[in-house]
Amino acid sequence: MDKLLAILNELHEDVDFTAETALIDDGILDSLDIVSIVTEVYSEFDVRIPPEEIVPENFNSAQALWELISRLDEA
């Protein structure tokens, strides 16, 4: 989980990802960030996030993102 937080903080230092729960809805993360997250996750966790999973619910908070990664990992 903390590896994921490291990736997120690297994108936006000023955002407290542990507390935020509307990263997409509030427009904090844009398409550039999303794609960067996907590529980082792919290289770090060797988990490929398919396009259909790129929906606000999965990216709105670090916690939701972590659940997505774990779900895809053992599926």
Partner: peptide, 16 residues
């Protein structure tokens, strides 16, 4: 178009 293209395997390879 945008999402699939930016996360498809060839694109991930390019980004690496």
């Amino acid at each position: 178009v945008f999402n699939p293209v930016s996360v498809c395997r060839p694109m991930l390879a390019i980004s690496k």
